[in-house]
Structures are given as C-alpha cells and as structure tokens.
C-alpha cells in the first residue's frame, strides 16, 4: 500500500462553471455600452454609394441626418414611388424645392446643440446612389438658404479600390 493514493482518474470531472456568469456579464456590459439604438425608422430606401476617400465622422452628437430615396414598400400606396426626403421621422411630401421644411429642421436641430457647438453642426446626407441629382441639388440649395454649410456625403468605404499609399 502506497502512502499516497493515486487520484481516481476514472470518469470526467465536472468543469467548474462558477465564473461563466462573470464572463457573460462582461460581454453583456460591453454590448450594452456600445449599442446605439436607432432612433429613426427609415421610410425611404437608402443605399449609399461607395467611395475610396471616405473619412470617419468624428463627433456624432453634432451630426443630423437627411435621407433621400424612394419610399419603402410599405408606404408606396401613400406616397408613390418618386424619391422622397426624410428629415428625422418625417417625410416631406410637398412638390418643388423643400426650402421651408429643411430650414425648420436645421433650426430645430441647431437649437438642440449647446451654444458653443452650433457652428460645428454637420448635416450628413444619406442619399441613395440611384437618385437623380435634381433632388440632391434642391436639398443642397435649401441647406445653403438655411445656412447649414457643413455637409457630409455619406458613403461606404470601397475596399476594392483603396488608394495605394
């Protein structure tokens, strides 16, 4: 008889899972912190173009979004299939140059920012790539009248055509 008995190696030992909740909670908190819930429901289809020279938008709190595209299939009965402009949750339905609604929108969004940041407000234009420039020009003119001159043409990074630098 040996003094030190060999450990019983038969059968699998249960793995200690006490730290599993901790690990899961860590992951959970990571995702909770990084998640940004989408505030607006898109009512227009937007497929932004690809571009090679895109830059990341630095301060997201200073950015307001204008969407231009054809209405999504659910509201085609209501609005038809012509390209529409969406400001936050609201679709602009009137014909012609949408200067007044965009002016109001810009004023409203600018009002929300702290005073020292108002000059840095950026309008991100999320425009479908198949839309005609006529609509885009109207929006740009309206933004000029609203004195919101910093704009950003939203585009996806084109990974296939990256410049060699």
């Amino acid at each position: 008889m040996s003094k030190f008995k060999k450990k019983d190696t038969k059968g699998l030992q249960a793995i200690n899972t006490a730290s599993l909740p901790d690990i899961v909670f860590m992951l959970l908190f990571f995702f909770m912190v990084t998640t940004v819930m989408r505030e607006t429901t898109l009512q227009v289809q937007v497929q932004v173009p690809n571009a090679s020279e895109v830059k990341k938008i630095e301060k997201k709190s200073l950015v307001s979004y204008i969407y231009v595209g054809r209405p999504v299939s659910g509201i085609v009965e209501l609005y038809g299939t012509e390209p529409m402009i969406q400001l936050n949750d609201k679709i602009i339905n009137d014909e012609g140059v949408p200067v007044e609604p965009i002016k109001d929108f810009v004023l409203f969004e600018r009002e929300k920012l702290p005073e020292e940041d108002r000059n840095f407000m950026t309008i991100s234009l999320r425009i479908d790539k198949n839309i005609n420039m006529g609509k885009v020009t109207d929006v740009k003119q309206a933004l000029r009248y609203a004195n919101a001159l910093k704009i950003n043409y939203s585009a996806k990074r084109d990974y296939e055509n990256q410049p060699v630098r």
Binding site: V24, L27, L28, F31, M32, T34, T35, V36, M37, R38, V48, A51, E53, V54, K55, K56, I57, K60, V63, T122, S124, L125, K140, L143, R144, Y145, N147, L149, K150, I151, N152, Y153, S154, A155, K156, R157
Partner: peptide
Amino acid sequence: LLIFFLVATTMDVDTGISRLLPPI
C-alpha cells in the same frame, strides 16, 4: 440579455466625404 444586445447592435461607423457648401 447578451443575445438580445448582440442582435440589436449595429456596428456600422458613419463614413463619408465632407464638403463645405458655398454661402448664398
């Protein structure tokens, strides 16, 4: 909860080309 947040997360970063419009 983890699975909920995994599904709900959108990780797209906003990218684009910045421009300054000329004033009227």
